[in-house]
Simulated assay, not measured.
Amino acid sequence: MPETDDAPRGASRSQRSGSGGQRARGGASDGTGASGREPPLYGALDLGTNNCRLLIARPARDGFRVVDSFSRIVRLGEGLSRTGRLDDAAMERAYEALVLCGERVARKGVESVRLMAVATQACRQAENGPAFIERVRQGTGLRLRIIDPIEEAKLAVEGCLNLFDDKAEAVLVVDVGGGSTELSWLKRTDGAFVLEGWMSAPIGVVTLAERHPEPVGATPETLDAWYEAMVVDMGEALSKSPIDPALREVFAAGRAHLVGTSGAITSLAGIHLSLRRYQRNLVDGLWMTRGDCEKAADRLMQLGPDGRAAESCIGPDRADLVLAGAAIMEAVQRAWPSERVRVADRGLREGLLLQKMREDRRPRRRRRRR
């Protein structure tokens, strides 16, 4: 696969403060320090089940300014649900992408103490996941840390905080990955959104697509049944939610909304807007209705695999996965009914950057001498 800058399909460039999508809000320091010098560069690397993504940024007054970004679909988790191991070809694809990330980090001069590199579901689940992480360390110098689902969910929330509707009583953040889907429920308490609970459903776009291969030459009725089977599969996983069912009434009454982060929702947004080319400034922060999402999913089914591959907001690498993502979102909307979903072209990497920049701003305590 060719090297690319951050591809559209849900790979975030930055968090948008309202002009061009080049800055992220989150309370980071000003663009220049007291000495007049630019603040140091930070990097966030996310190796997921489907994508390898890198974001390099510099702290700014309203969050951070993106300096460089990279995304490549590597399908690290391909076949994992069947074998329990990372496939050799998949590891090679991921390794090649990580080599390119390491070169970009070195070229930009990001110090190791300011590079946060994490791996998620595929490496968590695979028997040989830790061995692959060690191979990456030895071969590239990148020290990837396998994070658990709760940290992944919290980072996604951190990256999306400024998309929450201040008037909402509750928000559900849905981070659809390749091998799992992280859901975080937040409830407004004393004027602030507080985490009410979370869950990690062991279903993502790759696992769902592998469980339910798209039928070839199917009739519209067959396609509907295939899509519904994916929705039901995800719905069963969501039925294990640990959240108090009473909170569901807040969603059903229209006093809450969803935030969708990942290619699953940004692809639907691109189709909904009929974009000839992906435009992040039009997608990130977009409000869609439940009906908008369903119509976009219907259109994707009508396009067929070749038609989806030709769509600039999807492309050939995601043509066989995008409807699995739509089915996951529909299952969530059935379980937690909400007429409004806000599209987030941002997530874990932005959360990593904001978290690290905030930590580095805190004054260090001096030890008292006895």
Results as ranks from 00 to 15, higher is better:
R58M: 05
Q355L: 13
A122K: 02
D190E: 15
I271E: 02
D317N: 07
G191H: 09
R367N: 03
G260K: 04
H257G: 10
G204D: 05
E127I: 07
P305F: 10
R93C: 13
A117Q: 02
R334G: 09
A269V: 10
Q302K: 15
M234L: 14
L47Q: 05
Y42P: 09
D5Y: 08
A156E: 00
N51R: 01
G315F: 02
V231E: 07
A297M: 08
A192N: 14
I314L: 01
R135A: 10
G325D: 05
E311G: 00
P242G: 01
G27S: 10
M288W: 09
E359T: 08
N50S: 14
G347N: 11
A94F: 11
L286A: 04
G139Q: 09
V99D: 11
V176D: 03
G33F: 04
S71I: 01
R114C: 06
F132P: 01
T49C: 08
P305L: 07
G270T: 04
S180D: 08
Y95A: 15
A297T: 06
V231F: 00
R358Y: 10
T219L: 09
V194T: 15
K154V: 12
L286R: 04
G43L: 07
E134Q: 11
G102H: 09
G351R: 02
P245E: 05
T207Q: 04
S35N: 13
E169N: 09
F164V: 15
R124K: 11
A326R: 01
Q333S: 10
R75H: 13
I147P: 00
A168N: 02
A89Q: 15
L98I: 05
R143F: 02
G129R: 01
K167M: 12
A296L: 10
L55D: 11
D148F: 00
I203P: 00
G270E: 02
R248N: 07
G102V: 01
D68T: 11
E78R: 13
V216H: 15
G263N: 02
F70S: 00
M230W: 04
L163F: 04
R277L: 05
I265H: 02
T83A: 11
Y278C: 02
W185Q: 03
T140N: 03
P130Q: 00
E38A: 13
G315N: 03
Y95I: 12
A94H: 05
V67E: 12
R25C: 13
T83N: 12
V206M: 08
F64M: 02
G109C: 04
E134P: 00
G347F: 04
G325F: 07
R9A: 12
S267G: 15
S17E: 10
L354R: 04
R135K: 13
C293F: 02
D317F: 13
L183G: 03
N281D: 14
E103R: 15
D6L: 13
I314F: 06
R93V: 13
D224K: 15
S17D: 14
F251V: 01
T207W: 01
T261Q: 01
A218V: 07
G31N: 13
Q279V: 09
R65E: 12
A344Q: 07
K187P: 05
R114P: 03
L76Y: 10
E221P: 08
L100K: 12
A97E: 03
L303T: 05
I150S: 10
A11V: 07
R137A: 11
G79K: 08
P220D: 11
H272V: 04
G260C: 06
L275R: 08
P316Q: 14
M288Q: 01
R114V: 00
D320G: 08
A324F: 06
A156L: 05
M301L: 15
A117W: 00
E330W: 10
